[in-house]
Amino acid sequence: MAGGTAQVEERDLSASAFHTLVSFRLSAAGPRPGLLVVPPLSGHFAMLMRDVVIGLLPDFDVSLLDWTNVRHVPQPFGSFGFEDNILTVERAIRELGPGLNVLALCQGGVPALAATARLAEEAPHRAPQALVLMAAPVDPMANPTAVVRLIRRWPMLWYRMGAMAPVPRGFAGQGRRVYPAATQLAGLRAYLARDRERDGELARKFRADDGADPGVAPFGDLYTSVMDVDARHFAENLEQVFHICAITKGRLTCRGRTVRPEALQHTTLITVEGALDDIAAPGQTAAAHDLCIALPPRRRARIVVPDCGHFGLFHGRPCRERVLPAIREHLLSAG
């Protein structure tokens, strides 16, 4: 595919009100290893990971959890919480079958690690062959950034009460309490303004888009296209991941059972961090290695990408030229 084009087959494998599991594979390609991409459920659409999917397709059949904008989900379907996120990832892994690789980005990381840990303990033959955690705040206090400090500055009561709003009339989900896309967009614009002051990675991407196909998917559109997030998930994610750091304290539970990363024994764990990441700084993702104490050294890899920030890990030239080749090498040798 380098420098050219290829036909890609896309199909929906399964769905709920809150997600669709989508499959992508190269047409006329032979059998490939499977890889599940778990995007963060934090306000951006899964389209933000387009460069990752395109970059991995030559070597893998790629599936992706495409989260639904909950403003379109009627209230009778109920709410969607952090535990539901874990269980959705777990069901996708089970559905895609043995030998699967999983790649989780940012706030998709803790649910993916939790789902893998549950499978390793309850159904080891269904646990992923490899788990890649990219810029994931497994332990945000390992190297707290300004973003982490800001999240922890406000009590959880403020997030549950002050940060939420009902979906307005005219949408299928009217009345559902959400963290609104408009609030998310205001925060993203503020972050961009600060980055422009220091001419950071994000500012440079807006000035010179280095994505795989900026004519079709401009980075500015990917960055500013946001969705409503169910209020329950938004609050529980902040509480479990950033406020009480539940998985590092042994306090994360799912369906009444404690999540035990130490149950991982046969899954290769690969952590990927950007040396200049000011959202999930180096150390936050690599903390997963300290939790997965039963893994032997041959089933561990820590990748720290020099001169790379948060967005370069999954978009643009650093992603294509440094991140994905390193991930591909480890995954293809992980069997």
Rank of each mutant, 00 (worst) to 15 (best):
P261V: 02
R91N: 11
L131K: 02
V89Q: 03
M161T: 14
P261A: 04
A29R: 10
A182I: 10
C106R: 07
R160E: 10
G81K: 02
A172W: 10
R255D: 15
L113E: 02
M1Q: 09
T68H: 11
G30S: 11
L157P: 05
C245W: 03
Q7F: 05
D199A: 15
R152L: 04
T268W: 04
F206A: 09
C245A: 12
P168D: 05
A182T: 15
P166E: 15
D199Q: 14
A28K: 10
R299W: 00
P111Q: 06
F82V: 04
H19S: 07
V147W: 14
D12M: 05
R257F: 10
R152K: 12
A6Y: 05
R91H: 09
R118K: 11
L119C: 05
A286S: 13
P306R: 12
G78R: 07
V53Y: 01
Y159H: 06
T20D: 04
D59P: 11
L87R: 11
P111K: 05
L21Y: 00
Q7S: 10
L21C: 02
V38F: 02
M161V: 13
L192Y: 12
E9W: 00
A334V: 06
P214G: 06
L295F: 07
V89K: 02
D199P: 02
P74T: 02
H233E: 10
A287S: 14
V110Y: 05
V52Q: 06
H72V: 07
D51E: 08
G108I: 01
D61P: 05
D139V: 08
L238G: 04
L295M: 05
Q265W: 07
N85V: 04
D59C: 09
E122I: 07
G173S: 07
A127K: 00
C106H: 12
L21I: 01
N237A: 13
R302W: 03
A246E: 04
P137G: 10
L41Y: 15
V70E: 07
S333N: 14
M227R: 13
R11K: 09
P40E: 07
L87Y: 01
A231R: 03
L41W: 14
Q184M: 13
G170D: 15
A136P: 08
E239A: 09
Q240E: 15
D213H: 10
F311S: 13
M1P: 15
G109T: 03
R257N: 11
I293M: 08
T285K: 11
